[in-house]
Amino acid sequence: MKLLVSPNPHIHSKWSTRSLMTDVVIALLPAAICSVVFYGWREALVLAVSVLSCVGFEWLITRGLMKQKSTICDMSAVVTGLLLGMNLPFTTPWWMVMTGALVAIGIAKMTFGGLGQNVFNPALVGRVFLLVSFPAVMTTWVGPVHFADAYTGSTPLSSVNEAILNGTPVTEITSQYSYGSMLLANLGGSAGEICALALLLGFVYLCVRKVIKPWITLSIFATVALTSLIFWGVDSARFTDPAFNLLSGGLILGACFMATDYVTSPMSTKGGIIFGIGIGFLTMMIRYFGSYPEGVSFAILIMNAFVPLLNRWFKQKKFGRA
């Protein structure tokens, strides 16, 4: 018998890149299923095209261009695909989804060196690319098909944005939405944002499985709540209230699943909290003062750029060193 000799430790935790990524996929499933239930087969098609093309592009790039071992087994492309799909309206045509996937995997991920090397969240880069390239499609939100009064043209946030730009009181719009219905079915917007409750369920799953720590997400929520509380307190006719801001748009999806992406978020808890505060504040600034109705994607991407700096500035306290 030949003994196996290697340095300590001789055992390993249950974690692997693949298991962590699979956990994220599992956590996203409730929200994805909700979106399919609400929006129907076209949403299923968007998700499927997005996931398949992300995985396909990664395979093509690693095998065809880089002549390396394929990395699709680590499941990270599936996560990117699912997140990208959930960030698009269900009316997005299939070729547009594929373009987004190509940008996400090809430009945002693989050009930087693949998994772990990218500075910006790939799914968000894909989404923002589509948003600025095809604004008409990307901002024409169609309400869920199962609702009798399916409507076209606006989400709560875009109506509010218009109101703010036009100077009309926002209360007229916010009063149309009850918080309860927003929690269960966030009318309009990207497909994956439809059910806040399902997203939060996935977030709790990730925290319980210790895949992520909750600090980034919680600090985003807290900052959004606090910032909007201050503005709303000053002028409740002009600015929307905290609960509306927390529940509307892509905030929950972004805070739970995009801002917490390992690669593009700070390592330390302290850095994570600062990162979250930055995202929350920027989101609110864009929502209140920007020309785009929604700012979560931009806020996260901007803060992504600060991650190396945050990693350098906010380190964990070392043992026995003042």
Binding site: K2, L3, L4, V5, S6, P7
Partner: peptide
């Protein structure tokens, strides 16, 4: 001939620090 199998990081220095060799 080898008498055991090395299972650590493939670096001579790591291996030499660990033991006399395989």
């Amino acid at each position: 001939p080898t008498v055991n199998t090395y299972g650590g990081f493939a670096s001579c220095r790591v291996k030499a620090t660990l033991y006399s060799g395989d």
